[in-house]
Amino acid sequence: MNKDSIVLTYDVPGDDFTRAGEASSNLKSYLKQMGIPPEIVRKVAIAMYEGEINMVIHAGGGEIEVVISPEEINMKLTDHGPGIEDIELAMQAGYSTAPDNIRNLGFGAGMGLPNMKKYTDELKIDSTVGLGTTVTMKVKIQ
């Protein structure tokens, strides 16, 4: 990490779906105020929002660390949920293990991870069944 980096951390509560997205909203405002180009801000906001929603739906919340450097924005989302058994399958558009009540809320279409990949320059998922999942994403500023 270089000396010009800014680090932001967020706790994502896992018990309240209505609050999901607060961290992403906060980050979006912060990046806008920093004068980061709107296209980049939007990509970061969408990717983080999908990740945040996933944490709430699947893992009972978690923690997010965002490192902003002049060149890139790195997001690290860590949860202590059930983990992902088959990451390749989870990455397929349309594949979802979300329950029906989540689908009724407008999520669980199996587009979360594909969207996170679409809007970032790098996406890495480390998961251990029974222990949790860490998702790291990078969006380049230039």
Partner: peptide, 11 residues
């Protein structure tokens, strides 16, 4: 629901 407005905000 609230996530409709959140989605609009992100997009």
């Amino acid at each position: 629901n609230l996530q409709v407005i959140r989605t609009c905000e992100m997009m």
